[in-house]
Simulated assay, not measured.
Amino acid sequence: MHGEPKIAIIGSGSWATALAKILLNNVEHINWYFRNTDNIDQFKRFGHNPNYLRGVEFDINRITFFDNLDQIIEESDLLVLAIPSAFLHDSLKEVTVDMSHKFIVSAVKGIVPHGNQIVGSYLHETFKVPYDRVGVIAGPCHAEEVALERLSYLTIASPDIKRAADFANLLECEYIRAHVSDDIFGTEYASVLKNIVAIASGIVHGLRYGDNFQAVLVANAIQEIKRFVDKVHPISRDIKSSAYLGDLLVTTYSQFSRNRTFGAMIGKGYTTRTAQIEMHMVAEGYYATKSIHEINEEFKVKMPICEAVYSILYENVPPSVGIRQLTEKLR
């Protein structure tokens, strides 16, 4: 890419909006895909996303809106995917143009249930995107704190460190620090697993367990994540770094964590369906729980926290029973 790359954000939720805000600190213009044309019209009229982070104002002259995926892909060099993983396959199956020569950065933080694949593997197998043209944005970073311009750190992972570094430079600003990694598999799986742990954290909060047990839960969770990512993709990595441990901590403890909020509702007696409806947002961990359970049928990693969440969400085990059984397995 020569000069400023043409960047496309594909997705219209809170994280997509936060990334648009960050990128416009450093690039003059972005392309932005919204599936709903009414939302585009409202955005142009009021100068902000009508549904998410409405306090963030944009100069709409620096944004070209699209409602056609083929068109935005053809007119962009770098694609930032920010569609919830549960809807990614259905959203992208209408794409007919070649994406294999683009640099595609996943900001999805979930598993594509269609085939139980992390986004990097899904892009590689479905759209023939080489792994060195795949990037991953890892936290710890909540969209709401980006909107408030609170200092946050991101990790950009890609097998092509040069591309990762170039994209990281586009994110650096007064309130964002961005670092690079070559671990796209570990960072993606860790991002998926921390959402499941956050649901567990919410459930135990809803059941009125205290901070002491929360600490034990998270201490065991980072070990569980390490066992899984080391089995699935065995490379040298520091599981205590921000992209893994930091992302886990913020997702399990933050007031902005939708997965923790979802879990707390389950712990208080809501059904999964009712909790999803009342949140008005997607808790990625709900779908990830089933996918990880199915993936682990092959790898057989010891994962008591993920299995406890699976039993509660998908096997109708009462939360109080599922967590009580879990307490016997933690150290």
Rank of each mutant, 00 (worst) to 15 (best):
R258M: 08
N296V: 09
R45S: 11
G110K: 02
A198P: 14
L123H: 05
Q71D: 15
I40W: 00
R273D: 15
N49D: 00
F256G: 03
V309E: 02
L154E: 07
V216A: 15
E4W: 09
S106D: 05
M265Q: 14
A16G: 12
E75S: 09
E315S: 11
I83S: 07
E278L: 10
F127C: 10
F87V: 03
G186V: 11
N116F: 00
K226D: 15
A107T: 03
I277S: 14
G55E: 14
N31Q: 05
P130M: 04
N169H: 13
E174F: 05
R237C: 01
D230E: 13
E94T: 14
A275L: 08
W32N: 09
L249Q: 02
D182Y: 05
D230G: 03
V218C: 06
V180H: 07
S311F: 01
G11A: 08
L171C: 13
I60Y: 02
R163M: 11
I161S: 11
E149K: 12
G202D: 08
Q71R: 13
V146G: 00
T37K: 11
V112W: 04
L148T: 06
H205C: 10
K109T: 11
Q117F: 06
H48W: 00
M265K: 15
A200E: 04
G269E: 06
H179E: 12
A264R: 13
K302C: 07
N212R: 11
K21S: 10
A86V: 14
V129C: 07
R237M: 10
H114F: 10
P130L: 03
N39W: 01
L249A: 03
F65H: 10
H48K: 02
Y310P: 02
E94M: 07
I199S: 11
